[in-house]
Structures are given as C-alpha cells and as structure tokens.
Amino acid sequence: MKILVCVSKTPDTTAKVAFKDSNTKYDDAGVQWIINPYDEWYSLVRAIELKEKDAATVIHLVTVGTADADTVIRKALALGGDEAIRINADSHDSFYIASQIAYIAKEGGYDLIFTGKETIDYNGSSIGGMVAELLDMPYASLVLKFDLNGNTATTTREIEGGEEVSEVNLPLVVSSQQGMAEPRIPNMRGIMAARSKPLKVVEPIAVDALTSIVSFELPQAKAGVKLVDADNVAELVRLLHEEAKVI
C-alpha cells in the first residue's frame, strides 16, 4: 500500500489577517506557520494509523511551495511518514497546484491520496477533486470516517443533515475533515527521526494557471453591538423583527 498525503503550510489559526503591496499580497510579517489542520490532524494522522496496522504501508508527503515550507514539512514528518516531496513553486491557482501533485502521484503509483477538505487560508476546497480528475480516480469528499478492508475503502462523508456511507475500490482520492482521526502531536523520537528522513525537492512541470488573485479586501467592521437589557428580552424580539428583519 502506497499512500500520498498532500500537505500545505498555512498561517496559524490565530494569525492576524492583513495585506500589503496595495492589498495584493498576504502580509505574513510575524506570522506563525503551521501544517493546514485538515492535512495534519485528519489526513496525515489517519494515514499513520493505517500504517500502524499494516507495516508494509509507505507514506509519502507532498507539498507545493518554496523553501520556507521546509520547516513545516519536517514537522509533518515528525508525526510520521517515510519521505516528503516538495515541488518548488509558489502559486495560488488550484489547477496549477493540483496538476503538480497529479504529476507526482502518477509517477509514484499511489493507491490512496489524502488531501484536507480545504486549506484554512485560501479555502479553495478544490485540490482533491482536481487531482482525482487528473488521475481519473474516484473521489470521496468531506470524509468523516475512513476504513480499509483489503482493496476496498469504506468512507463516511458529510451530506446535508447527515452522513452517507459508501464503498469504493482503490485507487482513490479522499478529502478529509474532522472525525477521521484524533489529532496527535509529534514526540521527541519522531522529531529526531524526521531530521534524517528524505525531503526531495523537484522542479514544477509547465502548467498555465487558470486564475489569479487581483486583490484582497477586509470585511467592513460591524457598527457595534446594540445591548438589550436582560430583563427586557421582548425588546430583542422586536429589534430582530423590525430592525434586522430576520424573524
């Protein structure tokens, strides 16, 4: 079994959101970088759990990014995984990124490809579907639970107001979300081992991006909270009906 886990570096969930160069670039001054939570907590940890059950399983990590992503990838390797591949490119176009990953995935002949359901910065939620299409594989999206029985995967995915349980044969692309695995933190042995794990850097293939970010905007600040006295909840009902018009 060969598993490819797609990881991305994202700003820490508490990082402030600001932009520079006339609102065309994210201002990353002083930002702490983390592994995208959906990639780390759910995809990678679930892959590690599968390897713990079947020692013959090989886990490779792949990321598309420049050298400043290396620290985050080493952290991912400290959790587990056998080696990492960094495709040396900087892009925010999902199709460009997915094409790079699909190229590596095709070369590596993976049985199972995990992505997070989205990154918490650009919220594209597209890489899994695009990679699946480029590789002509089935795609299980927004997966809450994942089990493997030989060559057959059982997935539970989120649907409106419930869950859907399906079976599908490998190879398969999965996008993971909360529920897939219990978050872990790397231990000292993992951190030491990660230092000597291979981190291969490859150059990107030529792909034309289909989208580009023109500018960023911050939402307008709220006008300020209107406080209602706790003894006068009828006033809140009136405001919600007459002023906000939401009930």
């Binding site: 932009f19 650009y122 919220n123 989208t211 970010i213 960023f216 911050l218 939402p219």
Partner: peptide, 17 residues
C-alpha cells in the same frame, strides 16, 4: 469575489479561461 481566511477576508479572483 470569494471568501478567504475562513471568512476573515475576501479575494477578488480573475478567471482567464
């Protein structure tokens, strides 16, 4: 225009295809 940073900002994205 789309939401980014989990709703904390917006990006204006141009499609060229």
């Amino acid at each position: 225009k789309k939401t980014v940073f989990s709703g904390k900002a917006f990006a204006n994205v141009s499609i060229s295809s």
